[in-house]
Amino acid sequence: MPNNSKGMYNKNLVIAGIVIFVILAAFPFWFNVGRSAPAPEIILTEKAIAAEDCVRDKEYMTLEHMQLLDVWRDAVVRDGKRIYVNPKGVEFNMSLSNTCLDCHSNKEEFCDRCHDYTSVSPYCWDCHIDNPQGD
């Protein structure tokens, strides 16, 4: 067994190591403190403005659209149920392309701005067509 003083020496090294590790691991956080860019302004299409209401209210959609899409996906693909009834009793076809992106057909100004801002890169559009009307 290593002697006692050597063991203690290691302990200091360990503490120093943990400190360095935590500082490094936290790099993105302290590096960006006080430097966050202003939230982007998103633009609605005329169709979206005319519709007034989305599937759910604006705040819910801003925060939770990914959760909603996730349960929609499972409902459609796995359970074969394609209609969503929102709390107001309005029915929607659960289709990212044919419902969501039909209204929000301006991907760059609507989806991408926030996704870029929050630095997420969902790959929905690899398969789901962003503008089903093709204009």
Partner: peptide, 27 residues
């Protein structure tokens, strides 16, 4: 080193109040 991390996560919070189970049906 760790404080900014905790601050950031504290700001994000959870996913709001619990949702009622969504209603799905077939056409």
């Amino acid at each position: 080193g760790a404080k900014p991390v905790f601050d950031t996560f504290a700001a994000v919070g959870g996913h709001g109040p619990t949702e009622p189970a969504p209603i799905f049906k077939s056409s």
